[in-house]
Nucleic acid binder design. Structure first.
Lengths: 141, 141
DNA sequence: TCATTTCGCTTGCAATATGCAAGTTAGACT
DNA sequence: AGTCTAACTTGCATATTGCAAGCGAAATGA
């Protein structure tokens, strides 16, 4: 487990993975403007490290040559259970701004939720699975 | 979720929680000597922050007045599913040194494993639930 | 075509966090 | 009383982070 924490044992990596997984983010710009307030140099660094760890991969956008699309690998999407448990824990124990009832529903439908997340990943379904649960401080979800 | 990562979004906090949860660690000294190589000032800082976040609590040892026993709170033990999923992910995708067969067994017995972990916490069963899966670099498990 | 904008970064630098070694205090142990 | 041990704290060098600005290539607009 400590080797895992060397990969995403920081404040940003798991947020990037979550944004890829359930918010439908694809590009550098989207992460940058996600409201979490990550600095661009750190973002670039984390994307590089996640790629080196085989958790995400890149492909050039066909419609816009400037854009790089980031995407979770299989190894990356396999983090879905971790993220889901973290989401549930946060909703139960922290004031996340997320609607607890909705999260509890997910908690009692774990397998279905995970199956749906994976299905969307496989089919490249671009719709966000979760909204941003916006709070005033913009850090929930 | 990002508020959760402000609490344990670093390399050490989740390891401390894991050591409390499944390795039966109780004291400062035990964490310090766990082989992960955490510096004492950082350890003190993380214990303070985890306590402030309500994830761990302290009580003075009755047998030895110098010792402080650290213990997970209910909020802390509720992180068990997160840790379990992380353990499973690591065993599947990283070279952790943990015996994959044993971990896969846990993966298919999720609820029983979690119930047992919680039971031991409630009953203050001091036996470690997991061994240290020692590898040469001493960072697996 | 040529200026302007957008995208995905990189650079410089100040602030913060981390790691290492040594020191301190209170409570055992002999 | 003297030594030892547990749980920290302190000082300081190094590493990581955050902030603002800049940069090159590709797109967009006139």
């Amino acid at each position: 487990m400590s080797i895992s924490l060397e990969i995403f044992g920081d404040r940003w990596s798991l947020l990037i993975i979550r944004d890829l997984m359930v918010r439908g983010y694809r590009t550098f710009k989207e992460f940058e403007q996600s409201g979490e307030g990550i600095a661009t140099n750190i973002l670039a660094d984390r994307l590089k490290k996640l790629k080196a760890a085989g958790i995400i991969a890149t492909e050039k956008s066909k419609s816009d040559g400037r854009k790089l699309n980031y995407r979770l690998t299989e190894k990356g999407i396999d983090l879905a259970p971790v993220l889901l448990e973290l989401l549930i824990w946060g909703a139960r124990h922290e004031d996340t701004g997320a609607p607890c009832a909705a999260i509890e529903k997910m908690a009692s439908n774990r397998e279905a939720v995970l199956a749906e997340v994976r299905r969307r990943w496989q089919e490249r379904d671009p719709r966000p699975f979760l909204p941003k649960f916006g709070t005033s401080n913009g850090r929930a979800g």
